[in-house]
Nucleic acid binder design. Structure first.
Lengths: 236, 236
DNA sequence: TACTATCAAGTTGTCTGACAGATTGTCAAG
DNA sequence: CTTGACAATCTGTCAGACAACTTGATAGTA
C-alpha cells in the first residue's frame, strides 16, 4: 500500500480517501478471504490520516459486508462483496409472481409465529388499529398501503428487524406490481371487506392469544386465499 | 426518541445500539424523506453514548444509503430504501446472528415443504449424494460448504429460484461468520456426524415421501437444534 | 425596501490522547 | 504436554479540541 497523492487527497473527504484506498487494496487481489487487513494504527501511518477517519472507512466497509472487525484481533476480509440476499427484480410473469408469493408466505408465516410469541399488548393494539384503518379504507376502494401497514405491524411484533424489513420490501414490490394494472377487480368492496375482516381478525386473535401455530396457520390461509383470489383476477 | 433500556444496552456494541435506535426512529414514520435527523450532539445526549459511537452508527446508515450528512447542516433522510430485499450486512453480534437465523428458518422450512411437494426422484438422489459427501467431509473435520450444498439441493427441489438464491446467500453469510473464529469447537466430529446423519436423514426421507408437513418440521428441528448447538459453542 | 456583508451559533469532519475490553503469543511451572 | 500469568497488540469507546462549513440574524448601504 502506498501513500496517496496530494491531488487525490483534496478531492474527497478524509474518510472517503481512506475508504477508497482500503477498497483498492482489497480489490487488488493481494488478500484472500479471511486475511487480515493492516491494523488501524498501520492504516493511519500509511494513509497519513487520523484514526477517526480510518475507523469511519472501516465502518463503511463493514456496513457493506466486505470486512469484519474483531476487537483485539483486527479487521478481516470477508468472502467478498456479498450479493444482496435476492434481487427484487421486476415481476414479469405470473410464475414469477407466484415465486415471490411463496417467498412472502415463508416470511410472513414465520413472522406471525414469532409475533405470537413476542407481541406485547401494545403490539396487538397497533395491529387492531391498523386493521380498523384498513377497514375504513376498504370502504372507499383499494387499500394496498393499509394492508401492507397491517402486515408490517405484525412484522414489528416479531422483534426481528431483518424479517420486518424484508416483508416491507416485499409488500411494496407486490403493490407496485398490482399498481401496474395487472389486476382486474372482480370482488365487490363489501365482499372483500368481509373476507379481510374475517381473515385478519383470525390472525390478530391468534397473536393476541400467543398461539404461534394458530397464527402461522391463519397467515398461511390468508395469503394462500389471497393468492387464489389474485390469480383468478388475472386474465389468462 | 427515548433512552434505551439497560438490558438492550448490554447486548450490542455501543455503535450498534446507536444504529438500531436511529434506524427505529427513521422507520417510525416521524420523518419524511429530506427531513433532518437530530444532530450528533443531540443523539449523544439522548443515547448517553460518545460522539464516536454515534458517528459510527451514522457512517453505517450512510453506507446503507438511508442517510446523507452535510457538514454544517446535519444528517438528512434520503428518498427511500434501496430496492433490495434486505441488506446482508456483516454480523456484528449474537442477537443479530439470531435474527438472521430466524430469517433462514423461515425460508428453509418453507422450502422443505415445497420440495416435498415438488421433488423428483432425481432431486432426492441429489440430496442423498450431497448428504453422503457431507458425511465423508465431516469425518475430516468441519464441512460448512458441504452442509450448505445439502441445503441447496433441497432448495433446488422447491422449484422456486428466488428462495433457492436467498438460501444460498444466507448460508454463505453464516459460514463467513463462523469462519471468523467466533465459534469454539465443542462437539467431536463423530458426535456431530451422528447428529447430522440423523437430522438430515429425516429431512430427506420426508421429502422423498412427499410429506410437506413432516419435511417442514424436520427442517425446523434441525435448524433449531443447530442454533442451540451454535449458541452453546459461543462463550458468553 | 431590497440587497450585501458580517458575525455568532451550530453542525459535521478530523485530529489527538487516553482508557477499556479482548485477543494473541510467549514463557514458566507443574 | 497443559495451564496460567503476563505483556504486547488490537479494536471499541470516550473526551476534548479545532477545522471547515452552514444557517440565520443583524447591520450597513444603495
Amino acid at each position: 500500500m502506498k501513500s496517496m497523492s496530494t491531488a487525490t487527497r483534496d478531492q474527497f473527504s478524509r474518510a472517503e480517501q481512506a475508504y477508497r484506498h482500503v477498497l483498492e487494496f482489497i480489490e487488488s487481489g493481494q488478500l484472500a478471504a479471511g486475511d487480515r487487513l493492516p491494523s488501524e494504527a498501520e492504516l493511519e501511518a500509511q494513509l497519513g490520516l487520523s484514526r477517526a477517519s480510518v475507523r469511519e472507512a472501516l465502518a463503511r466497509l463493514r456496513a457493506e459486508g466486505r470486512v469484519q472487525s474483531r476487537r483485539g484481533s483486527g479487521s478481516f476480509l470477508t468472502e467478498g462483496r456479498p450479493a444482496e440476499l435476492v434481487r427484487l427484480s421486476t415481476i414479469t410473469s405470473v410464475p414469477e409472481l407466484i415465486e415471490w408469493h411463496e417467498f412472502r408466505l415463508a416470511l410472513e408465516s414465520e413472522v406471525a409465529s414469532l409475533a405470537a410469541e413476542r407481541a406485547t399488548d401494545e403490539d396487538v393494539a397497533r395491529m387492531r388499529a391498523a386493521q380498523e384503518l384498513l377497514m375504513e379504507r376498504l370502504s372507499a376502494g383499494a387499500a394496498s398501503r393499509e394492508d401492507a401497514a397491517f402486515h408490517r405491524a405484525i412484522a414489528t411484533a416479531s422483534r426481528n428487524r431483518k424479517l420486518e424489513d424484508a416483508i416491507a420490501a416485499l409488500a411494496n414490490h407486490v403493490i407496485e406490481w398490482a399498481r401496474m394494472g395487472q389486476v382486474k377487480r372482480v370482488m365487490s368492496p363489501a365482499e372483500r371487506r368481509e373476507i379481510i375482516a374475517s381473515e385478519h381478525g383470525e390472525i390478530v386473535d391468534a397473536i393476541a392469544a400467543h398461539n404461534a401455530e394458530r397464527a402461522r396457520s391463519a397467515v398461511r390461509r390468508h395469503l394462500l386465499n389471497g393468492r387464489a383470489r389474485l390469480l383468478s383476477a388475472i386474465d389468462p
